[in-house]
Design a protein around this nucleic acid. Structure first.
Lengths: 122, 122
DNA sequence: AGTATATTTAACCATGTGGTTGAATGTACG
DNA sequence: CGTACATTCAACCACATGGTTAAATATACT
């Protein structure tokens, strides 16, 4: 199990926090694309698209290999793993809580003075 | 299966793209806390912490209920679900690829013309 | 009423983001 | 060699961020 640095998470989440970039990644999931191809569907200059790509490169989500005059971008989803792992710890909180018990237990963890039926100790 | 809006994802990923905010959420996973309590561990002004909290509120990750003069913040992890679902589509790409085949298939989809070992030159 | 506590608001600063246009760089091609 | 193409760089703009301090608000306490 790998450990991820905070800065890594910063960069990945940051990269994903923009619809243009998410759309680019989506396309890259199907095939590698040049900068120009990646930019084409968007109503923005090439320079703007180039900046988005650079930001994703910084996050490690895109690998680039220059081939002649074109730069081919390839998805590298691996860094998302870090974000996924981070979020996974919270999955329990949106997962249907079939029992109020679980919530109560968490509350009591803090309270620590309500002995109720068991748990008393510490 | 719920569908998530792009703006929702923007806000959630944005909220998670900062170590201070992630640390705050981590503490809220254990117990609800007032703004002051939430801010206490950090070397920053209350005003700064207050802004972080507001940003997470905007993302729906924190619910606030005012109780007298203190504002109690409660984790609401549900919006993370959207981010998790989005990422899940990419899980296949960092998951161990036991077969090179899959990668090849994706590549060929694009190439479609390079005849084998040729590729001579250029 | 007056004071202390909890939090937000306002004004400000430096830096980042998302975009533009125009010039520079590097590579391919006739 | 000269020109076209692919992409970046530089300068600029408006606005968001992450932080500060100081003042404003709201509630509680005596």
């Amino acid at each position: 199990m790998v450990k991820y640095t905070s800065a890594q998470l910063d960069d990945v989440f940051q990269a994903l926090a923009d619809p243009t970039r998410r759309a680019m990644l989506k396309r890259l999931a199907k095939q590698s694309l040049s900068v120009g191809e990646l930019a084409q569907p968007f109503a923005m200059s090439l320079a703007a698209a180039s900046k988005h790509i650079k930001l994703m490169e910084r996050a490690g989500l895109i690998d680039r290999h220059v081939q002649g005059r074109t730069h081919v971008c390839q998805l590298n989803a691996a860094p998302m793993h870090a974000g996924m792992e981070w979020m996974r710890h919270y999955e329990q909180f949106w997962t249907p809580k079939l029992d109020v018990l679980e919530a109560l237990l968490r509350t009591e963890e803090k309270t620590a003075s309500t002995p109720q039926k068991a748990r008393r100790k510490r």
